[in-house]
Design a protein around this nucleic acid. Structure first.
Length: 590
RNA sequence: GCGCCCGUAGCUCAGUUGGAUAGAGCAUCAGGCUUCGAACCUGAGGGUCGGGAGUUCGAAUCUCUCCGGGCGCGCCA
């Protein structure tokens, strides 16, 4: 709808280029917005004001000239100058009726953009370390990433979702040793659990099955395990301590058993994460193992290429990347003094690999605490000649859970933290998803458990879903009252008489909101802002509820009834499409 | 100290290529169900857009500065 008008405006401006404006106008400059006030028409443009300075003419004069130059169109009833130089456009009501028919015609595909050629987007999100179950913070990242992926796809991009499994490195070793210690407990040993170990109860079942599989072959007396170790926190250094425990474990059980322990521990955690995501309705196209990636030699090759470009140097026994050449605060270590490559080294190679898989846009959905990392990774990409802005990193601010107004403490190493699974079981997937998405991602989120379960207007989940269910309910009522509904017939009625049958403030507001959907999709996608879609769906639901309260739907007049049902079903379709993008269900009844 | 995010109605928040009288929900107050779902609707009150300066026809939006809150600043990931 907007595109049609945009074209008219563009043609008018082209015809004035030679005379009044004196220069061509970049079509990108032509702004066209929905009006807030119906008195200002359907759309408004401030183009005359924007061109005034360059053309050396008053905005009003330009605006008049632009209006005069507009091609005649059956859909544009009039255009007028208003305010300081706005051009207000009044569209024929038929246009809205046509849009309703379009919603029906395109169904689930309504609102999908088709910009050629589609960009290839690699969307990486969650990528939670396989060291424990997903927590409520991951839940927000998962909801955001998944909805963003849907949004981008709806806007016409080609999206691939990827999960990077951090199955290499020290954290996984801490995981393995934590499992082993729990296993020793299962065997009957009593021990003091390290401060820096993963202490959650979720490792106990893993230890149980380890015991079931391996028997007591990995068992060693606690007195031997903990003999002659440095002091643990709080008196000592918890990092040094856990490293010593890891070394002791490897020495006692042997390298083969250690690798097996490592693998099974990671696999168990990964299973849990996959199950969580599956139950949450979040699916990935690709799971990339850091370990496999490392073993492929990709990191060494990337480092070698950096070395050839003279972007690495050795200092204090470590190898550094000249990140400062790419805007970072300081140079960064890629190979530690002990010869072990850093996580950053693998991330340089991984992001390079993403680009070499031909993705135009890389999106990393990150927790806000990783913001300092972005410049570094971008620097890595630039070192290989890729533009820095090909990497975007929407940051997801923290989530705080509240129960009865009291903030709940969290922390992954602590024994008790709220998992995503617990949250989903308590409030349900839909509420969970939409609650996570209703705030901007760079706003920290207070997740009120009671509110998410409540059935009030403050809970947008119910409000939007109720609108959808309400339409379904009317359709069910239809037959009971002896009425029939014929979609093809309703379509004809809408196209022929929709403008008059759906007159009235509430109906017009509803249809105006309905027709905005494709614009909302494009803008929300461009801004990477799923919350804008939540807000829109809430508005659309409001117009539906208002219409419903103002007008009786199941009236005796066949044409009127058909037109109203046809419009309601179109709104229902858009609600369904929008909810699908958010990853929430659209129930027929509640 | 440096970097990023945030500061808008009593509360939680929208408002992003600078636009017309700054919006929504909750809360408060006043109304609406013998007929399609009242988990709804209609109306009212409520604002130094953190403070100040600047850019310009025009600033919640852009720039600078100050204040307040959050998060980062590792040869961890």
């Amino acid at each position: 709808m907007k595109e049609d008008l945009q074209l008219l405006l563009q043609r008018a401006l082209q015809s004035l280029e030679g005379s009044l404006l004196g220069q061509p106008v970049d079509p990108h400059w032509i702004t066209l917005e929905r009006t807030r006030d119906p008195a200002h028409g359907d759309f408004a443009s401030n183009i005359a004001m924007r061109l005034a300075k360059g053309a050396g003419k008053p905005p009003c004069v330009l605006a008049e000239a632009i209006i005069a130059a507009l091609p005649t169109s059956p859909f544009l009833t009039r255009a007028e100058v208003a305010g300081a130089g706005f051009i207000n456009f009044f569209l024929a009501k038929d246009l809205y009726a046509r849009e309703v028919a379009r919603v029906h015609d395109e169904g689930a595909g309504y609102g999908r953009g088709r910009p050629p050629p589609p960009r290839k987007v690699l969307l990486e999100f969650v990528s939670a370390n396989p060291t424990g179950p997903m927590h409520v913070g991951h839940g927000r990242q998962a909801a955001f990433g998944d909805a963003l992926g849907n949004l981008l796809a709806a806007a016409g991009d080609q999206v691939s979702r990827e999960y990077y499994i951090n199955d290499a490195g020290r954290q996984t070793e801490i995981l393995a040793v934590s499992v082993w210690l729990r296993y020793l407990e299962v065997c009957g040993e009593t021990l003091q659990f390290p401060e820096n170990g993963y202490r959650g109860d979720y490792l106990r079942p893993v230890a149980q099955s380890l015991h079931a599989r391996e028997g007591t072959t990995l068992r060693h007396a606690a007195t031997i395990v903990f003999a002659d170790l440095p002091t643990d926190a709080p008196a000592g250094d918890k990092d040094k301590y856990i490293d010593a425990v890891i070394a002791r474990c490897r020495a006692l059980i042997g390298e083969t058993a250690w690798q097996r322990l490592l693998q099974t521990s990671i696999a168990a955690m990964l299973d849990e994460i996959r199950n969580d995501l599956d139950g949450y309705g979040v699916h990935f196209d690709n799971w990339v193992s850091e370990r496999a990636f490392t073993d492929s030699g990709a990191i060494d090759r990337a480092l070698q290429r950096l070395r050839e470009r003279d972007l690495l140097y050795v200092k204090d026994g470590a190898t550094w990347f000249k990140a400062t050449q790419f805007g970072d605060d300081e140079d960064r270590v890629v190979v530690r003094e002990n010869g072990v490559k850093t996580y950053f080294a693998s991330d340089i190679a991984y992001h390079l690999d993403k680009r070499e898989r031909d993705f135009d846009v890389l999106i990393d959905v990150l927790g806000a605490d990783h913001h300092g990392y972005v410049t570094r990774v971008r620097g890595g990409l630039r070192a290989f000649g890729h533009p820095g802005d090909c990497l975007e990193a929407p940051l997801i601010q923290l989530v705080a859970l509240f129960r009865n107004g009291v903030k709940m403490s969290m922390g992954k190493r602590e024994a008790n933290f709220v998992t995503l699974r617990q949250l989903r079981e308590e409030v349900g997937n839909d509420a969970c998803r939409i609650f996570y998405l209703m705030r901007s991602n760079d706003q920290s989120l207070d997740f009120d458990l009671e509110l998410a379960k409540s059935k009030t207007n403050e809970n947008p989940v119910f409000y939007i879903q109720y609108a959808h269910a309400r339409v379904a309910s009317v359709m069910k009522e239809l037959a009971g009252r002896g009425f029939a509904y014929d979609g093809a017939q309703a379509r004809q009625i809408m196209l022929a008489q929709g403008a008059t049958l759906l007159a009235g403030a509430q109906a017009e507001a509803m249809l105006a909101a309905l027709s905005r959907y494709p614009e909302v999709i494009l803008q929300a996608a461009a801004q990477r802002a799923p919350h804008a879609l939540v807000n829109y769906l809430r508005e659309l639901a409001t117009t539906l509820h208002a219409f419903y309260n103002a007008e009786r739907i199941l009236v005796a007049d066949d044409a009127l009834r058909s037109a109203r049902l046809y419009a309601l079903l179109a709104v229902q379709q858009v609600l369904r499409n929008g909810l699908a993008i958010l990853g929430a269900s659209a129930p027929e009844s509640m």
